[in-house]
């Protein structure tokens, strides 16, 4: 009897430990990484017949309300971890909540865990549009070049092309694109490394990320972007993000928005440190 109780207690303890470990796991398991993407990858075949929309202009994200989160339901980032449209896997939720964002309602700049601020690595897919910086499209017959004054950095979107079978994981991945309906550029990206966040709040992605962007020219001054996160290793279903661009007359790259670890540190020492109570740990 005593033995049974002991065995039961041991089993319960083991189960409890396993549940606790599962709850605190902040990386995907090999089973997570083995899952197939939800959505078809790459261009449709045959490609849609479409005239080429004119995407020229200096496209700016609106001032005063660009948002913190990729979540279409919670762009302001006030429901971190509870967004109705983000179907987290447990590890992805645990990872998100373990991060300290640099901006937004849950920000603590002095202790932030943001890889972009600490290392000035490329912001990556999705997150590049969490800042009020401008983007320009250079359209050629073979490729569309996305130029971002934030970074600054650029992406190559190959037209009339397919993804390689096994692309090397990189910050911006491998992107193919095509036009639809005479007004939309669709970009399909895979082969992304797992270093970047999807937004300011620390939403993770894995190397299995399949990221779809649809840039629709709504009118002369407006470009609407619909994004889809298809990462079955981190989320149990695809989920959406949205942004709107308007044309800027300020001038593209009039001031290059460089990320400098030195400038980040100095800004904190000049302003943030004094407002922080207690020891600063930013560096």
């Amino acid at each position: 009897m005593r033995g049974r109780i002991l065995t039961g207690a041991l089993v319960a303890a083991t189960l409890f430990t396993a549940v606790l470990a599962a709850q605190t796991q902040i990386t995907p398991s090999s089973a997570d990484l083995a899952q197939k993407n939800f959505l078809p990858i790459g261009p449709p075949s045959p490609l849609p017949v479409s005239k080429v929309p004119d995407l020229s202009g200096d496209w700016a994200l609106g001032l005063g309300g660009i948002g913190q989160s990729l979540s279409a339901a919670d762009p302001g980032g006030r429901m971190r971890g509870k967004e109705p449209d983000i179907p987290y896997k447990p590890w992805a939720l645990a990872y998100t909540m373990a991060q300290v964002p640099p901006t937004g309602p849950d920000a603590k700049f002095e202790t932030n865990t943001d890889p972009a601020i600490h290392y000035c690595e490329p912001l990556g897919l999705g997150r590049i549009y969490m800042y009020p910086a401008k983007t320009k499209f250079i359209q050629t017959p073979d490729a569309v070049y996305l130029l971002h004054e934030l970074g600054p950095t650029f992406r190559v979107i190959w037209l009339n092309a397919k993804h390689p079978e096994d692309p090397d994981p990189q910050y911006w991945g491998h992107s193919v694109g095509w036009y639809e309906n005479g007004d939309t550029l669709v970009i399909d990206t895979i082969g992304v490394n797992d270093r970047s966040w999807l937004d300011q709040l620390g939403h993770p992605h894995t190397e299995n990320l399949h990221f779809i962007e649809r840039y629709k020219r709504v009118d002369d001054k407006t470009l609407q972007l619909d994004m889809t996160v298809d990462d079955p290793a981190a989320y149990t279903a695809p989920w959406p993000g949205k942004r709107n661009f308007t044309k800027s007359t300020t001038g593209f790259m009039r001031f290059m928005w460089v990320c400098s670890v030195r400038d980040n540190n100095e800004h904190y020492e000049k302003v943030g440190a004094a407002g922080n109570t207690g020891a600063t740990t930013f560096k």
């Binding site: 309300g65 660009i66 901006t103 700049f109 800042y131 407002g275 922080n276």
Partner: peptide, 14 residues
Amino acid sequence: ASGTVLAHHGANLY
């Protein structure tokens, strides 16, 4: 306060 304020680093300090 506006959304922009929240975009400032350390806005929680203010």
